[in-house]
Write a protein that binds this DNA or RNA. Structure first.
Length: 318
DNA sequence: AAAGAAGCCAACCGCGTTTAA
DNA sequence: TTTAAACGCGGTTGGCTTCTT
């Protein structure tokens, strides 16, 4: 019973693909399609596992793939979608024509996570680090809060120093009179102390935090909390995912626009799954384990990705 | 110029789900 | 209906390239 194996495990080649193998696979698929991955390597004359062939095709050889740099617009899309669906790379990639889940995942892990961290934003929750600390601190007694601040500093110090020194990232202290950081050892220590002080203050006064939009510091907020925010590179006061944060194209950057308007839908099934996910996150009512769709679709009928204001997608899952 | 560190990405691994015998 | 492989996905790793010291 059961299926026959996809390949003889001992008799398959592994590792990097050669151009010759790529040609064999591409030309076979061009003629016969991708109906049965188990048979493809055999019929194409490849000593590869079917699974390996499938990966090579889907991640590299497919003619519709883009291989260049990610644009600001694509990065913006990834960050926004990640804030909604988390590490669902296939769902995110489905919204980026020509990009694979592997591409998106690699780009996130090597670039975007660091960008967000550098902005003082936790790439998992998409909230400012200081706010997360404050949230946790509300459940702790003061001595534990002090330890938390120490621990948090230990976690983030290296990352921040890296950004502040090695990457030459300067930032403005908008509400304190501290001079911009440079790269000498003593001043790095000063930076640590400043961060430490502001973080501790923010943590010890959690009641001063805004409640509805934790990262929207544009209103009347605690000077201490704002100070803590300003301790992070790029100052997240008035934070939003936008061109000032990611792109270098100024006000014309696609980061500032409603996402991907005009793009065509290339993955209907994934689109549906993402819509389900988004609706789940937006509090869709359930009945017998199945979500009931409410009428307000975020996707318009032209299969444009969506037309929501940015803020709606930025609401954290946590 | 050389060595080590860091960045990058293609490919592999393992797990949950689907499908075919 | 049962079983085992295919499939799809996210996490991890190995090795090549680039950067820094």
């Amino acid at each position: 019973m059961g299926r026959i194996p996809c390949c003889e495990k001992d008799n398959v080649k592994r590792g990097q693909w050669t151009p010759e193998e790529d040609n064999k696979l591409s030309s076979y698929i061009a003629q016969h399609g991708t109906r049965n991955w188990r048979l493809i390597p055999k019929h194409a004359g490849l000593q590869r596992c079917g699974k390996s062939c499938r990966l090579r095709w889907t991640n590299y050889l497919r003619p519709d793939l883009k291989h260049g740099q990610f644009s600001d617009s694509e990065e913006h899309t990834i960050v926004k979608l990640h804030s909604v669906v988390g590490n669902r790379w296939s769902l995110i990639a489905a919204q980026l024509p020509g990009r694979t889940d592997n591409d998106v995942k690699n780009h996130w892990n090597t670039k975007l996570k660091k960008k967000l961290s550098g902005m003082g934003i936790d790439p998992v929750t998409h909230k400012p680090f200081s706010h997360l600390m404050a949230e946790i601190a509300t459940t702790l007694a003061p001595p534990q809060v002090a330890h938390l601040a120490e621990a948090a500093l230990g976690c983030f110090k290296d990352e921040m120093l890296h950004l502040l020194t090695k990457k030459r990232v300067n930032f403005q202290f908008q509400q304190s009179n501290v001079a911009p950081v440079n790269t000498t050892h003593d001043e790095k220590d000063d930076t640590v102390e400043i961060i430490k002080l502001n973080l501790s203050r923010a943590i010890q006064e959690p009641d001063m935090l805004p409640s509805s939009k934790p990262w929207d510091f544009t209103g009347a907020t605690s000077a201490n909390f704002a100070g803590a925010c300003n301790a992070f590179p790029g100052s997240i006061t008035g934070f939003q995912y936008g061109p000032s944060s990611f792109g270098n194209e100024g006000a014309k950057s696609p980061w500032s626009q409603s996402m991907c308007t005009g793009s065509t839908c290339t993955a209907g099934e994934q689109q549906g799954r993402l819509q389900e996910k988004l609706e789940d996150e937006n509090g869709g009512e359930s009945e017998g384990g199945k979500e009931i769709r409410n009428g307000s679709s975020i996707f318009n009928t032209d299969c444009v990705l969506w037309d929501l204001p940015s803020d709606d997608l930025m609401n954290p899952i946590v």
